[in-house]
């Protein structure tokens, strides 16, 4: 590459040395930043093993006496199992419905080039941007007698999750060659069988992405239950935390334990499904 090999080699060696030092420096800076970034979560984890007395004073991070009973005490609360059931029910049903409705609709919208088909697609895509109008939605739910019901909440969650799912699925199905459907049609397959046996198996990666992303969103959501459910027996875990704090404001150890219980399912999912999560975010966001 260079004509003067000796000075070229010296320069390369220096550059490598500088790079090596720069790398170490960068690693140290990142490690310090990561520690501060992780600090709130560390405080929660350690705080959940403190006694009430110790947790009340904010000045020590490490528990002096490890108290393992906090989790049991939180879990024995009278309403937590009910809230857990509600959270699981709402999350699973709304994700299942979103995926089924979006998949079949996207299949037809990706394939047909009619005005109705593209009009419907445009309407869905507009929902990626538009904010939910809370008060008119409440009135609509009241009109349908679905206000303050889990069904009503699930349907609103589905409606607000559909735009992204339709966007993701339609883009993906457009990449599946049409000839596959047509040859199956020639072989006597009907639409339902084509969808179930040919399209659906190919959709697995986007279905996984959608399921993980909406599970995180729905499980953690606070605003929809807050607006659309006022009966505390229907509350989800995040809503119950909110209520719990006003009751146990002096027992930070119990509050932290509760926060860990609320976060655990999604964090575990994230740690084990990190690959899907990250690749899903990347494909969904960058293609858009």
């Amino acid at each position: 590459m260079t004509t003067d090999t000796s000075s070229g080699a010296a320069r390369n060696g220096l550059a490598r040395l500088a790079k090596g030092k720069g790398k170490l420096l960068l690693e140290i800076v990142l490690a310090v930043a990561a520690f501060f970034y992780f600090f709130p979560i560390l405080m929660m984890i350690l705080g959940s093993f403190k006694s009430s007395m110790e947790a009340a004073s904010f000045n020590k991070l490490w528990p002096e006496v490890w108290e393992f009973g906090n989790f049991r005490q939180v879990l024995s609360g009278d309403r937590i199992l009910q809230a857990l059931r509600n959270s699981v029910f709402i999350s699973f049903l709304s994700i299942f419905l979103t995926i089924v409705l979006a998949a079949i609709a996207s299949f037809v919208m990706a394939r047909r080039k009619s005005g109705f088909s593209s009009g419907a697609y445009f309407l869905f895509i507009a929902g990626l941007v538009a904010p939910l109008m809370y008060i008119p939605t409440i009135k609509t739910l009241q009109f349908l007698s679905l206000m303050n019901t889990l069904t009503g909440l699930i349907l609103v969650v589905v409606a607000t999750n559909l735009p992204f799912a339709v966007f993701l699925f339609t883009g993906f199905i457009k990449g599946i060659p049409r000839e596959l459907d047509e040859s199956a049609f020639v072989d006597g397959f009907g639409t339902t069988r084509i969808f179930l046996h040919i399209i659906l198996p190919l959709l697995t990666p986007v279905v996984t992405t959608q399921a993980i992303l909406s599970l995180v969103g729905v499980w953690n959501d606070l605003s929809m239950p807050l607006f659309f459910l006022n009966d505390s027996s229907k509350w989800t875990l995040p809503m119950l935390v909110y209520n719990f704090i006003s009751q146990y404001v002096r027992n930070w150890n119990l509050v932290y334990a509760f926060l860990i219980i609320v976060s655990l399912p999604v964090v575990v999912l994230f740690i084990f499904g990190q690959k899907h999560f990250v690749s899903g975010l990347m494909s969904g966001a960058v293609k858009g």
Binding site: V108, F124, T137, P163
Partner: peptide, 19 residues
Amino acid sequence: LYPYFFIYPALIVYLVLFI
């Protein structure tokens, strides 16, 4: 091959509760 009634369930939920 691609009937509109595959779009209807999603469209109805979306129209009624969002649009």
